[in-house]
């Protein structure tokens, strides 16, 4: 795949920053970057549409955030059409975080057991990781 010049850093909005802190508070995640990575894979596995946000504050270098390039590979695998995976990843972080916030509102904490069970169930039912649920912003 041909990749256009992509972002060197990953940024989040103020709103996403708030959710990052909330998730840290409600879970045993040690680093906000771990939460953000989890948000990316949650979005990918559920087929969440990425959310474009404005006024992003730089948060991590891509080298820190994805030192092995594995997350980029995952993004590319699920979204072969995407030409700027790290820019795309920012949108996945944003939507993934909102999904997690909703989940916390409902369950009071991050129920990994439920989240993983839901992901598996979707894949069994559809044999593809697509969740068209639109998480309201």
């Amino acid at each position: 795949m041909k990749v256009n010049p992509d972002r060197k850093t990953i940024g989040v909005s103020v709103e996403s920053e708030r959710i990052l802190k909330l998730v840290i508070e409600k879970t045993y995640f040690k680093e906000q970057a771990d939460v953000a990575r989890f948000a990316v894979s949650t979005s990918l596995s559920r087929g969440l549409k990425n959310l474009t946000e404005e006024n992003l504050g730089t948060k991590w270098n891509v080298g820190t955030f994805d030192p092995t390039g594995e997350i980029r590979t995952a993004v590319e695998a699920f979204h072969p059409e995407c030409t700027e995976p790290y820019r795309f990843m920012e949108g996945l972080i944003a939507i993934g975080l909102r999904f997690l916030e909703e989940h916390i509102k409902i369950h009071g904490f991050v129920d990994f057991e439920l989240l993983l069970a839901e992901t598996s169930q979707q894949e069994i039912e559809t044999n593809r990781p697509v969740d068209e649920t639109i998480v309201s912003n």
Binding site: T27, Y28, F29, K30, E31, D34, R37, F38, V40, S41, T42, L44, S45, R46, I71, A74, A77, F78, F112, L115, L116, T119, S120, E123, N127, R128, P129
Partner: peptide, 24 residues
Amino acid sequence: ISNEIGVLLARSWHWPLVKGFDNK
């Protein structure tokens, strides 16, 4: 245990993708 969980959570982004990756 919470430290152990913290270590596990650092790679938690893998978990939702395991099935998806296999399918892909």
